[in-house]
Each structure stands twice: as structure tokens, then as C-alpha cells.
Simulated scan of single mutants.
Amino acid sequence: MVKSAGRPPIGFVPTWGDDSKNDFSILSDVVFYIRHIGIEHGEWTLISCLFAYRSKGDVPITADMITRFLDCKQVSIVRWLNSLEEKGLVIVTKDKVNGYHLRTLDFSPILRKIESGSFDITFDSVFEDAPAVQQLAMAF
């Protein structure tokens, strides 16, 4: 679990476990199943923020950056990460590099949950059940 007491973690390293995949492609898959996976709004905001920062390149992602970007307190970040970890949706690995506290956040359990196909809903079924959407799609 991530703890808020004492010195805060210096940085976060988010990963999907397989970094050969495109973050935004994965995020678009995840967003479709977000509520079925059990991800809450604040948790999703944090995940999106982490991968948005990661897309900027080799910029270290610090707790301070996230709190400023999301206009929240560090306790919220800790609460969201702990909740995701308790649900089994993130694996947090703690490390020290050059005296800095790092947290590697492996979100691959989310992908495994989606790949398991244990949902009553699929992306295609949404369009099959919505004639108005089909008509609109044909107009393009």
C-alpha cells in the first residue's frame, strides 16, 4: 500500500506491463469497460493523468505534479492508489533510485480483466442494440 505518512513518494512510473502497446489505444479500450471493471471516477482521473504525463517522454512524474494538475491533495492520490491496489487493479512496486523513492505502478491486471471477456457487454453489442447509432454511422 502507498502510505501518506512521512516523506511522500518522489515519483511514479506507470506501465501496462507490456510497454510495446500504445498508451492511448489501451486507454480507449479501458474507458469502455471502466464501470464494469470497478474503476471509480477519481481512480480513472489518476490513471489518465499518469499516462498523459508519461506520453510527454522521460519526464519524471511526481506526486506534486499530479496534485497540481488534478487540483487535489496528496491524500487523494494515496486513497485512489490504495483502492486500486485493494481491488487488484494495480501492482505497486517500491524502489529507491539514487536516494529517490519511486513507485512503479503496473496496471496490467486491468488489461487481463478486459481480456478475460467476463463482461455482459461488448463494444460491438452496444452498436447492435442501438438502431439510432447505426443510422447515424451510415450517414457518414
Results as ranks from 00 to 15, higher is better:
I26Q: 01
I26A: 00
L27I: 09
D29T: 04
V30G: 02
V31N: 11
F32S: 02
F32G: 00
H36R: 07
H36A: 03
H36K: 06
I37P: 09
G38Q: 00
I39P: 02
E40C: 06
H41R: 13
H41N: 14
E43Y: 01
E43C: 09
T45D: 15
L46A: 04
S48L: 15
S48T: 12
C49W: 12
L50A: 09
F51I: 02
Y53M: 05
R54G: 14
R54H: 07
R54T: 09
S55V: 04
K56M: 09
G57I: 03
D58A: 13
D58K: 13
V59M: 15
V59R: 12
P60R: 12
I61G: 05
I61Q: 07
I61N: 05
T62C: 10
A63D: 07
A63M: 01
M65A: 09
M65T: 10
M65P: 05
M65E: 12
I66C: 08
T67F: 04
T67V: 13
R68P: 10
F69V: 13
F69Q: 14
F69C: 14
F69L: 13
L70F: 09
L70P: 07
C72I: 15
Q74A: 15
Q74I: 15
Q74N: 13
S76T: 12
I77F: 03
I77Y: 06
I77P: 08
V78E: 04
V78W: 03
W80F: 08
W80H: 10
W80I: 03
L81T: 00
N82T: 04
N82W: 14
S83W: 12
L84Q: 01
L84T: 00
E85T: 02
E86V: 06
E86A: 04
E86T: 03
L89C: 05
L89V: 07
L89G: 00
V90Y: 04
I91S: 15
V92P: 02
T93M: 11
D95R: 14
K96L: 13
V97K: 09
N98C: 14
N98M: 15
N98Y: 13
Y100P: 11
Y100W: 11
H101R: 14
L102T: 13
L102M: 14
L102C: 12
L102P: 09
R103A: 10
T104K: 11
D106G: 10
P109T: 05
P109S: 05
L111Y: 01
I114R: 05
I114G: 11
I114F: 01
I114D: 07
E115N: 07
G117K: 02
S118F: 01
S118T: 00
F119P: 00
D120V: 03
I121M: 07
I121K: 02
S125H: 06
D129A: 15
A130W: 01
A132P: 09
V133F: 06
L136G: 10
A137T: 07
M138R: 14
M138V: 12
